[in-house]
């Protein structure tokens, strides 16, 4: 019995505790990301933004959550009820399970698996299902069009994301996220891989359906795209999932290109700051860029979006991958 306690139950409770910590922190960050987005865009457009609920409007996310919870859940006629309610859950849980492998500080992660980067790639490639299921189950033209667009868009940009990830892991010589971060000691990969850093960031915008690639929910033509029929809690799950995805993808950008938890300079003063602070700062930087892009650029047209993905990003990332491999072999820097 004692063996059962020490061997199974304690590790199980410990893992459960870690998961709970991650989920709570991510959810609070997600809530405040929505607030930050409204405030930042407000400032950029010379408005005030939410500033009434609580000090500086800091309780606004909770007010919104309460408002959404008390609204009526609508099930459209002719819809497929199970799939309809499964879709937001899929989106939300996918945004959460990706955090299982993201190291926020040395050793601070839930699971240190060997194929961490592949796991992240797999989870982000699954994100399309929530949207497609929502679009189909809603039994609505607008939702369906949004879902179709989103499926094509996310599948297209995944390809270049995959190639860029391969370039990075060739340089690091590992698929383990902690080892990729460790390999960036001294030189963060956004310096040697700068063009890929830019392309990766833009592909992330497309992958998370953010502006200027938010065609799946283009409100000027599709009402609200795949979310048209959703209200109340199911809408909130989509909303949270989307913003949690933004944070997660920013985390991926930070790990692959901005050196994860590493301090910008390897000296005692910077190293005294805990790694998680640097990681959070890098994520915030990426999130700020995403919000900035939203406030700045108009929406892409659909054919332009496809052209950019297939005819520009895909060849560029493929050439860069070959160039990286060639450079590593030629200069004898292939990591063992």
């Amino acid at each position: 019995m004692a063996e059962f306690w020490v061997g199974y139950l304690l590790p199980f409770l410990w893992i459960l505790g870690k998961i709970l910590m991650f989920v709570v922190v991510v959810l609070v960050c997600t809530a405040y990301l929505t607030y930050a987005e409204r405030r930042i865009i407000g400032a950029m457009q010379m408005r005030i933004g939410p500033n009434v609920v609580g000090w500086f409007g800091l309780l606004q996310p909770f007010a919104d959550a309460v408002k959404l919870l008390t609204k009526e859940t609508v099930l459209p006629t002719g819809s497929s009820p199970v799939v309809f309610f499964l879709a937001p859950m899929v989106t939300f849980s996918l945004a959460m399970i990706a955090w299982a492998v993201i190291p926020v500080s040395p050793g601070w992660l839930i699971s240190n698996i060997n194929v961490g980067i592949l796991y992240l790639f797999a989870v982000s490639s699954l994100g399309v299902y929530g949207i497609v299921m929502a679009g189909w189950a809603s039994n609505s033209r607008y939702a369906f069009l949004g879902a179709m667009r989103s499926a094509a868009q996310m599948v297209s940009y995944e390809v270049s994301i995959g190639f860029i990830m391969i370039s990075v892991l060739l340089s690091a010589g590992s698929l383990n996220l902690s080892q990729i971060v460790e390999a960036q000691k001294g030189l963060w990969y956004f310096i040697p891989h700068f063009p890929m850093f830019v392309i990766f960031f833009i592909s992330v915008l497309a992958e998370t359906n953010r502006h200027p690639f938010d065609l799946p929910e283009a409100e000027s033509e599709l009402v609200a795209g795949f979310m048209t029929e959703y209200s109340s809690m199911s809408f909130a799950l989509f909303f949270l999932g989307e913003y949690a995805n933004m944070i997660m993808m920013s985390g991926v950008v930070s790990i692959l290109f901005l050196g994860g938890w590493l301090a910008p300079m390897d000296n005692a003063f910077f190293n005294a700051v805990p790694g998680i602070v640097w990681f959070a700062l890098k994520i915030s930087f990426c999130l700020f860029l995403m919000i900035w892009v939203r406030a700045t650029f108009p929406r892409y047209r659909y054919d332009q979006l496809m052209r950019l993905g297939w005819k520009v990003f895909l060849p560029l990332s493929l050439v860069w991958l070959i160039a990286t491999a060639g450079f590593l072999v030629y200069t004898g820097r292939v990591p063992a």
Partner: peptide, 12 residues
């Protein structure tokens, strides 16, 4: 991530 998405796409 890829094959089943295309399946779903076509079937829908």
């Amino acid at each position: 991530g890829a094959v089943a998405v295309l399946f779903l796409f076509v079937v829908m």
